[in-house]
Write a protein that binds this DNA or RNA. Sequence first.
DNA 1: CGCCAGGCTTCTA
DNA 2: TAGAAGCATGGC
Length: 281
Amino acid sequence: MKVTQHKNGVLISGIDDFDLEQTLDCGQCFRFWLNSDGDWHGVAGDRPITLRRLDDGILFLNITVGEFEEFWRRYFDLDRDYAAVRAGFPDHPALRDSTCFARGLRILRQDPWEALISFIISQNNNVPRIKGIIDRLCRGFGTPCGDDFAFPPPSVLACLSTEELGVIRCGFRAAYILDAAKRVCSGQIDLEQVAAMPIEQARAALQTIKGVGPKVAECVLLYGMGRLEAFPLDVWMKRAMAELFPGCTPESFGRFAGIAQQYIFHYCRCNPSCLCSTVQK
DNA sequence: CGCCAGGCTTCTA
DNA sequence: TAGAAGCATGGC
């Protein structure tokens, strides 16, 4: 991969397996939107970014090479060889189909706190509404950064009442968000510490937060803590495992099972006909 | 309008 | 201790 200063940003070229739509619209993050001009714009933590697909690579608009190196290289997991990850997967027809379809997908390294709140909000919810709620959360309680708003820190949310938080219209999840904020703010839960725990211990620690069960905990580990062995099992993945991977377990996919999970999830969401229609939770 | 949403908590047998 | 109901809200 080559990183060069471009006249209006930073251009990365010679990178395989990096598709903006597949990466930013595959259900792992909720703060990126496709502009009418084809650019992707979003915020990670308190850093806004606009991304553009060019013939010779991906352009990160209006940032310096320093900012790219300091933050965005890691955020987009650009030092990982995804072809090598795929080569390490077990040979399975449905997994081949999934990786072939979603080859340009990368797992973002999001902020643990942002991932925690985002996936608490995601429960029993749909993606457009999740994005709307998170947008209102940031506009209402985050500090401005350029034309955007930062994700509000635990200290800010911990002070709110459920009534005050109600303006984001997150429904019954308000109490869960406040519980998470209070426990992180007080230091009762240290997310950096959780990220470093053995995975079973990390799962248990996250699930002490109200509104965090097995699925949300797994999402926080995978998308917010860089734990690529984490394997979220939502209704889609449960169906995919039952119908496409009978007899397989998350462990069947190896140490990068979480990446396999994301290929499969995105493939099934975009091609629902690959699963039979019987929905069971 | 009715069904459902990247689930979880609480209630019930 | 498993299984189902209830949960706020709004996208489709």
